[in-house]
Amino acid sequence: MSGSAGGPAGGPGGATPGVRVRALPVGAEALLLETGSAAEVAALHCELLRRRDAGELGGVRDIVPAARTVLLDGVADPRALAARIARWRVAPSAVAQGPLVTVPVRYDGPDLAEVARLWEVPEEEVPGIIGATEFRVAFCGFAPGFGYLTGLPPRLHVPRRATPRTAVPAGSLALAGEYAGVYPRSSPGGWQLIGTTRAVLWDPAREPEALFAPGVRVRFAREAP
């Protein structure tokens, strides 16, 4: 992005030597920032929040991270902001420590044995591996209250089920690809189910409504049977 939206950024004059950003105007008042990885999205999201809090982003209303993008809504001049972002230096590891949420889990999921097989560990070791992992909500979507959690190393990534279930119970802790997640309500789904929680992920009467929000750190604590 050499001073205008739509071009690549990175290296000399770019967003950082490590984080590369491509800015695309979306309508008259939005800007879509594309990066190459979930880690880069996390760093860019934190930098955007910091700069908005410092009053550097003008009237930007919403900053919405996704798997490889961050959407800015309420941008008065998308091209001008794209040019400014091109001059930023954002370290790929510059991710602020968000609040920590501990979620109790019963490891009673129907795919627990399959996940253990894929990990090549005894089934009884799965709760300890999950419990020792600090997850981070990378972004939200799919259903109100559903957070896509990163933190598992690549060797523990598992595929989606070949045949999705027509109904996954609310509160199911599940894995798919690089992500973990908890279903906030009953819905179809193809993730591997390893446990359940009684935690309420989405409550419109609560402030905030969602238990998980981008940047929140999550620990899963094993609940006694």
Rank of each mutant, 00 (worst) to 15 (best):
V70A: 10
R52D: 05
A94F: 03
V70S: 04
A213V: 15
G171Y: 02
L71R: 14
G109A: 08
V101P: 01
R61L: 15
G11M: 08
R217E: 09
T133E: 04
E134Y: 10
F212S: 03
S4V: 14
R50H: 12
L175S: 02
P12Q: 11
I194H: 01
L31K: 05
S4G: 04
V19E: 02
D111H: 07
R89L: 06
A221S: 15
R87Y: 01
D53F: 05
V137G: 04
V168R: 02
F212L: 15
V168D: 01
C140G: 03
G7F: 08
S93G: 12
P184W: 00
V26P: 00
G128P: 00
G7N: 11
A180K: 00
A167D: 11
G109H: 04
V200D: 06
V218E: 00
L149N: 00
P127C: 09
L149E: 01
P164N: 11
P104L: 05
R51H: 12
P164R: 03
L175T: 00
P122R: 06
E34H: 12
A224Y: 02
L48P: 12
L156E: 07
I85W: 03
G58P: 13
R161H: 09
G36F: 03
V75F: 07
G131L: 05
Q192I: 01
P65F: 10
P153I: 08
R217K: 10
S186M: 10
T166M: 12
A205V: 14
